[in-house]
């Protein structure tokens, strides 16, 4: 049996909000360590890897491994009905045909209970070896989100160029072009405002702006985003959860 209680529904609300536009159907794998998901978008360009460790829950137990096949849009409809500050408990039997979601407000005078039908989802599972990266950028997630939104107004592609101590986001469109340069920066008082660049080799990669604008829906989850890049390889965008992560692997664009 699975029983996982979040102190606040807001964490799962944000996670589902970040995923629902990229993937429609997901298997949520529940083990004693927590809940994990791997899902690929229909175009097979973006892969989502979610890990909500048991430590992200106030109470968590899962005696036997359970797979919950969930339709993200339906899950989102139910999740939206709960208040962000409600306690949220996920409950499923050992061989479940439904996931129960219980929202309780903190004063315990209101309990809302929902049941979501499960689906049998046949999904490819991709093996992601330990990847080596040539460049790692830690930057404020809100800053990254603004750059992705701004650059998308110009072009469907966003070029990321990393040299020693700066990251250049470059966009070449039909009616004009634009770029934003971010430099390494340490804010000792507000560390979440800092930009850190760790570089082994210079990077010049191009990504689809549409996918980046899906990824930045994770912004409310974490004040910083970690971007890991390697020449001619998928990039990794990571948002840390209190205990766990939401990762996106994005395939680059190449010269034809």
């Amino acid at each position: 049996m699975l029983e996982g209680k979040f102190d606040e529904a807001s964490l799962l609300k944000k996670v589902i909000d970040a995923m629902k536009d990229s993937v429609k159907l997901c298997n949520f794998n529940c083990t004693e360590n927590g809940i994990s998901v791997q899902a690929i978008d229909d175009s097979r360009v973006l892969l989502i890897s979610l890990l909500i460790e048991a430590g992200s829950f106030e109470d968590y137990r899962c005696d036997r491994n359970i797979v919950l096949g969930l339709e993200m849009e339906s899950l989102n409809k139910i999740i939206k009905n709960g208040n962000a500050s409600d306690m949220l408990t996920l409950v499923a039997e050992d061989s479940p045909d439904a996931l129960n979601l219980i929202f309780e407000d903190k004063r315990r005078d209101r309990i809302a209970e929902y049941s979501l039908k499960l689906m049998d989802i046949d999904q490819d599972f991709l093996k992601i070896e330990d990847m080596k990266f040539d460049a790692v950028v830690n930057m404020p997630s809100a800053e990254f989100a603004k750059i992705c939104r701004d650059m998308k107004t110009l072009s469907e592609s966003l070029q990321i160029i990393i040299t020693k101590d700066s990251v250049k986001f470059n966009s070449e469109g039909d009616f004009g072009s634009g770029s934003v340069v971010i430099k390494s920066f340490t804010d000792l008082e507000k560390t979440e405002e800092s930009v850190r660049i760790t570089l082994e080799k210079p990077i010049n990669l191009t990504f689809g702006a549409k996918y980046l604008n899906d990824i930045i829906k994770s912004t409310p989850l974490a004040s910083q985003v970690t971007i890991k890049l390697c020449d001619k390889q998928p990039a990794l965008f990571e948002y840390q959860l209190p205990s766990g992560y939401l990762r996106f692997y994005l395939a680059p664009k190449f010269e034809d």
């Binding site: 093996k127 992601i128 664009k253």
Partner: peptide
């Protein structure tokens, strides 16, 4: 002209 790569050319099914 840029072409979008697929993740399937980088990762194998397990």
């Amino acid at each position: 002209k840029l072409k979008q790569a697929s993740l399937m050319s980088f990762f194998s099914k397990s």
